[in-house]
Write a protein that binds this DNA or RNA. Structure first.
Length: 390
DNA sequence: CTGATTTGACCCCG
DNA sequence: CGGGGTCAAATCAG
């Protein structure tokens, strides 16, 4: 499988992030008349996360280029982070980021990269997205069909206790709340429930599943009967802010320590939802029509034309409103959804990727294309004339 | 200081 | 009754 050829030594993402952050702040502040509007830190953080994930993926490429499942998961995380940023921007009323509008704005500016330049480009992008969705699903279908053979089992390291550092609590330091029993610890409220398999990092910390684009806060860990690895419980970080009830459980597989079973429960009511953001008016209708003349930089992007996704544009035919409320569940992964984790497992086929992920691809395109021997051309990223069709 | 993690206790439910 | 999910104090980390 041919993948993006990693740049020699990898791009300098750290400086890139810094530069990106500055430019975004300037641009957004300009739009709002000088001051950075409240909440934009979150947006910048999301964009930064996307870049960080992309950087990690670049670093992992040498080791993971033959692992489509891993690549798919990582790509999805990147795409999601971008979309999260866009959603936040929309909620913040940044009008210039009306990404649903297929017409280019005249102003340009830093946020322009989140927007298609024309209906043509949008259509072409949507086609690319459809293909992306198909492509993303493939490896996961493979996973569903044939479980990976058991690898050499490593030591039963803790699944999630990797980032908090060692912490030993002194004995009897904690007062036992025997007096007042807590009330109403409900459990049966999980509406949605989806389970998927996610490959672990191939480089770096393999103890953690790849980032899925959301921010989670761990609230518990439990040794599960019959499992060698503990199960970790996470809830959405924005629970307090938005009352987001999304949760997920992460369980490392016994027979494949490099694979995680992630169960998503509840839906994201926060801004970091997977709900599709971009519904190009021309997307569905013209996806096939523009297949051969796609103005997307298939040749210019890191994706070689020959390696381009096989066309299967009906993937996203189902209304995006059917999007499952399960946070972190990409439609593309649903072929992998494993039954058996409760009665509420849904296996309906929906879509999100095509009409959701275009900006990320656009940005990724720019990013992966903008490397140089000494640095990355950020001007290429932020230029309003970038890939202009004028 | 704030937010995240750890971890044993608590509690629901099969 | 016991497994699994959640709570929350203690602690860590930036």
């Amino acid at each position: 499988m041919h993948v993006l050829a990693p740049h020699s030594g990898g791009p300098p993402f750290a400086p890139l992030l810094g530069h990106l952050d500055r430019r975004l702040r300037e641009g957004i502040a300009a739009i709002h008349g000088g001051d950075l509007p409240g909440g934009m830190d979150d947006v910048l953080s999301q964009i930064g996360d996307a870049f960080r994930l992309a950087g990690e993926l670049m670093g992992d490429l040498p080791a993971a280029q033959n692992d489509p499942a891993y690549l798919a998961a990582r790509c999805y995380g990147i795409v999601r982070a971008y979309n999260t940023a866009i959603r936040m921007l929309q909620h913040h009323g940044v009008g210039a980021v009306n990404v649903a509008a297929a017409r280019p704005l005249d102003g340009g500016g830093p946020l322009d990269l989140l927007r298609p330049r024309s209906t043509e480009e949008a259509a072409g992008a949507s086609q690319l997205l459809g293909e992306t969705a198909t492509r993303l699903q493939e490896p996961f279908n493979m996973l569903a069909g044939a479980r990976a053979p058991p690898h050499a089992v490593r030591s039963a390291a803790d699944v999630a206790g990797t980032s908090g550092g060692p912490m030993r609590r002194l004995a009897s330091s904690r007062s036992p709340p025997t007096a007042q029993p807590r009330q109403g610890r409900r459990r049966r409220d999980s509406g949605h429930r989806e389970t998927m398999l996610v490959p672990a990092h191939r480089m770096g910390n393999t103890e953690l599943p790849p980032d899925d684009g959301y921010t989670w806060r761990k609230y518990g860990q439990k040794d599960i009967l019959g499992s060698r690895f503990p199960r970790s419980y996470y809830r959405c970080t924005h629970k307090n802010y938005y009352g987001c009830d999304a949760k997920k459980k992460v369980q490392r597989l016994d027979d494949d320590p490099f694979m995680y079973e992630v169960t998503y429960c509840g839906s994201h009511s926060c801004l970091t939802s997977t709900t599709p953001l971009l519904n190009f008016p021309t997307a569905t209708a013209t996806a096939t029509a523009t297949a051969t003349n796609s103005p997307t930089a298939a040749t210019g992007s890191g994706l070689a034309p020959a390696d381009h996704f096989m066309a299967q544009t009906d993937q996203a035919a189902v209304s995006t409103s059917m999007h499952l409320g399960v946070g972190g569940m990409p439609a593309s992964f649903q072929g992998v959804v494993a039954a058996g984790s409760g009665a509420g497992v849904q296996t309906s086929v929906s879509t999100a990727a095509r009409d959701t992920d275009y900006p990320a691809l656009d940005l990724a395109d720019v990013m992966f294309n903008s490397s140089g021997s000494t640095g990355i051309s950020l001007d290429g990223i932020f230029s309003s004339h970038h890939r202009s069709d004028s």
